[in-house]
Computed example of a mutant assay.
Amino acid sequence: MSFTRFVLRSVLVCLVAGPALPGLATARASPAPPPAQAGCDGGAGSPAICAAAQLKALNATMRRLYRAELARTQGTIAERRLIHAQNQWRRYANADCMFSHGPRRDGGPAWTQREDDCLAAHVRRRIARLRAEADCRPGDCPPPR
C-alpha cells in the first residue's frame, strides 16, 4: 500500500472513530443519494474514477450511520464495543482486499479500481449492519456478533 493511500485511510479511520457531532441523530433515515460523478452514470467516465467516487460516497454514508450509532450509545459499554468493532472491521476490510488483490506493486494499472471495488463491497455490508442496528427498537435489536 502506498504511503499516500495509507495516510488517507488513517485519516478516514480517525474521522469515523471521531466524536459524534450534534445533530447527527437524523442520520438514521436513509440519506439522499450522493450526486453522481460526472460521466459515471452514463458509462463515459473512467472506471477507476467512478469506483473511487462510489467508495467515497459509501464511506460518507457509513460515517454518518456510525456517528449516529455512537451518539445513541454514548456513555455506555456499547459505545466502547462499537468503537472497537468499527476499528477491527476496517482492519479486516483492508486486509481482505489486500489478500484478494495483492500489493499495489504487483497489481498492474487496474489495481486501484479493483481495490476500491472490493472496499466498496465491504462498506455496503457494513452500512446494512449499521442500518439494522439504527432501526431496531430496544429489546428487538440484532444480537451482537
Rank of each mutant, 00 (worst) to 15 (best):
S2Q: 15
S2T: 15
S2K: 15
F3W: 14
F3N: 14
F3C: 15
T4R: 13
R5K: 08
R5H: 09
F6H: 09
V7N: 08
L8A: 12
R9W: 03
R9Y: 03
S10K: 12
V11L: 01
V11N: 00
L12N: 10
V13K: 12
C14S: 12
L15H: 04
V16A: 02
A17N: 01
A17W: 00
A20M: 08
A20L: 08
L21W: 15
L21I: 15
L21E: 15
G23Y: 07
A25D: 09
A25F: 03
A25I: 03
T26V: 11
S30R: 05
A32P: 11
P35H: 15
Q37F: 03
Q37H: 10
A38F: 03
G39W: 01
G39L: 06
D41G: 14
D41P: 06
G43H: 13
G43C: 12
S46F: 10
P47C: 08
A48L: 10
I49P: 00
A51R: 06
A51K: 07
L55W: 01
K56V: 00
K56C: 00
K56L: 02
A57K: 05
L58V: 04
L58K: 07
M62I: 03
M62S: 04
Y66D: 09
R67P: 02
E69L: 05
E69P: 01
A71V: 10
A71K: 13
R72H: 10
R72Y: 07
T73F: 01
Q74Y: 13
Q74C: 14
G75Q: 10
G75P: 08
T76R: 13
T76G: 10
A78N: 08
A78I: 02
L82M: 02
I83K: 00
H84A: 10
A85W: 02
A85N: 08
A85D: 06
N87P: 01
R90Q: 05
R90L: 02
Y92L: 14
A93N: 07
N94S: 15
D96I: 03
D96R: 13
D96S: 10
C97V: 04
M98E: 12
F99T: 12
H101Y: 14
G102P: 10
P103V: 13
R104A: 12
R104N: 12
G107F: 01
P109R: 11
P109Y: 05
A110E: 14
T112G: 11
T112Y: 11
Q113R: 13
Q113P: 06
R114M: 04
R114W: 03
E115S: 05
E115A: 01
E115Q: 08
D116H: 05
D117W: 02
D117C: 09
C118L: 08
C118N: 09
L119K: 02
A120C: 02
A121V: 13
A121N: 14
A121D: 12
V123S: 05
R124I: 06
R124D: 03
R125M: 00
I127C: 00
A128P: 01
A128R: 06
A128T: 06
R129N: 02
R129H: 05
L130E: 00
L130R: 00
L130I: 00
R131F: 04
A132R: 13
A132C: 11
A132Q: 13
E133I: 07
E133G: 06
E133S: 08
A134L: 09
D135Q: 09
R137T: 02
P138Y: 01
P138I: 04
P138T: 07
P138D: 04
G139K: 03
G139W: 03
G139Y: 04
P143N: 08
